[in-house]
């Protein structure tokens, strides 16, 4: 059980943004959600995180319907948003404790978990620093630690590497892959950067609101008779031809 989307349509006013999107993710795997800017990735994230209300179709999060049992579904999800969603003036730990409280954890439990996550993320010595003092890569790591505090089984990241330099981008990507392997997390990593995708990843390609492909990267390339994810992606979306 992971994420299952069935027949999702979504429109802003009269403009259709998602058209008949259906997929299911493989438990415990790293999934890359690829799409050029404007493909509908953010809208899909908005729907999965209940920022937007479903207009039609169904989203199941670890077996819980987002429409019918939103609370149970939300508990299964850890989310890292595209924009920074940390309080810059509060310390790393204060940010984590706030999130834990929002999930109904007691202060003591929250502290224990936040200490544990920070240690695991090599951030213990930064616990009392205001987030403002951290560099972009570290801030992102804090956001991931925060997303995992309530021990979700799904981790959703919406273009988490935007604004990071190449080195931090790579580190972050490896870090999440490591978490995926270590904790058995099901990861959905939205990006428009193909270099963040590996051939044995599960890949979903979204283009103009439709899902063009969903499968193992290598298989998709074979089926499209292309060499590597980049070419497959370009073939399916017509992007990057110039």
């Amino acid at each position: 059980m992971s994420i299952e989307a069935r027949d999702i349509h979504f429109r802003y006013g009269r403009t259709p943004v998602l058209k008949d999107v259906s997929f299911s993710l493989v438990r415990g795997r790293f999934h890359a959600l690829l799409g050029p800017n404007g493909a509908g990735k953010s809208t899909l994230f908005g729907l999965m995180t209940r920022l937007l209300a479903l207009q039609s179709g169904e989203l199941m999060m670890a077996g819980q319907s987002l429409r019918k049992q939103p609370a149970a579904a939300m508990r299964e999800m850890g989310v890292v948003f595209q924009q920074n969603a940390l309080d810059l003036d509060l310390t790393v730990q204060q940010n984590l404790l706030y999130h834990a409280a929002l999930h109904g954890l007691s202060r003591r439990e929250a502290r224990a978990r936040s200490d544990r996550e920070l240690a695991r993320f090599n951030l213990s010595e930064r616990a009392d620093d205001p987030v403002r003092k951290l560099n972009g890569g570290h801030r992102r790591r804090v956001e991931i630690a925060r997303a995992l505090l309530h021990q979700p089984s799904l981790l959703l990241l919406d273009e988490p590497t935007v604004g990071l330099d190449v080195a931090s981008r790579q580190t972050l990507n490896e870090h999440v892959r490591h978490l995926c392997a270590e904790d058995g997390l099901t990861v959905l990593w939205a990006t428009h950067l193909i270099e963040e995708v590996q051939p044995d990843d599960r890949v979903l390609i979204l283009h103009r609101g439709s899902l063009r492909a969903n499968g193992e990267g290598r298989d998709l390339s074979e089926a499209a008779d292309r060499d590597g994810i980049a070419e497959t992606f370009h073939a399916l979306t017509g992007a990057g031809q110039s």
Partner: peptide, 20 residues
């Protein structure tokens, strides 16, 4: 408040939105 995205964090709580 789009800069901090703090509302998005708040709304990710599983508790009912009116309560939040």
């Amino acid at each position: 408040d789009r800069e901090l995205g703090s509302m998005r964090v708040l709304l990710m709580s599983p508790l009912p939105r009116p309560f939040l």
